[in-house]
């Protein structure tokens, strides 16, 4: 895969422990006591998202919209930008809410989010991306899978850029790492670099 040597991590974002970091630098941090609901509201205001649909989304989509908004701000990307996402608990958070609503009247606005790839649709709508999407479910962050699959999309010409990463939310705990992969940048798109960028908060 010689072509892969020309691929770079153009930008990366990490959201964990009430902290948002862009390329390893903390850009926003919140009080530890703040739960996801308040965090997602505060971040929306501070980052001036101005996207009323955000409030209708489930938590996983809010997390995806927030992180991709910051990641892609001022980046040149076209409609052929693919989304390669993964997590461990699929759409567990909203699945629980749907299960609760099943005891009374089921809410269609809840049910529609009970698939992990809906966030890919929401991001595609916001950023006008009409490209490849996939949602992988993995035990834990799997840099190799993200790397290998993103490379096949880029090297085969099926996508021009890729946003890949980890978008996990369970029991109000969230763990996000997304990166934009393109032909521009300084950090080579390698397994080691993905792991290093993801691992910052875990050390």
């Amino acid at each position: 895969m010689d072509k892969a040597r020309n691929l770079f991590i153009t930008n990366s974002i990490r959201i964990k422990n009430e902290k948002i970091s862009l390329k390893k630098e903390t850009i926003l941090s919140f009080d530890k006591e703040v739960g996801f609901s308040q965090f997602s509201k505060d971040a929306y205001k501070i980052l001036e998202l101005k996207y009323p649909k955000y409030h209708k989304m489930d938590s996983l989509c809010k997390l995806g919209i927030l992180s991709s908004h910051i990641l892609l701000l001022n980046q040149e990307i076209d409609a052929d930008t693919a989304l390669v996402f993964s997590n461990s608990s699929s759409s567990h958070d909203i699945d629980l809410k749907h299960k609760q609503s099943m005891e009374n009247i089921v809410s269609p606005a809840v049910f529609v989010y009970t698939l992990p790839n809906i966030v890919l649709g929401e991001i595609s709508i916001k950023h006008k991306l009409q490209s490849e999407n996939v949602f992988f479910v993995e035990d834990k962050f799997n840099a190799e899978l993200l790397l290998d699959y993103s490379e096949t999309l880029l090297n085969s010409g099926k996508a021009s850029n890729v946003v890949c990463g980890w978008l996990e939310l369970k029991n109000d705990q969230y763990d996000v790492f997304l990166c934009l992969v393109s032909k521009n940048g300084e950090i080579p798109f390698t397994k080691e670099n993905l792991e290093e960028l993801y691992g910052i908060e875990n050390e």
Binding site: I105, V106, S107, P108, A109, V112
Partner: peptide
Amino acid sequence: SIDALELIVLLEK
């Protein structure tokens, strides 16, 4: 369209 479905739920509830 999802809002329309939610309004149906609202009428029932």
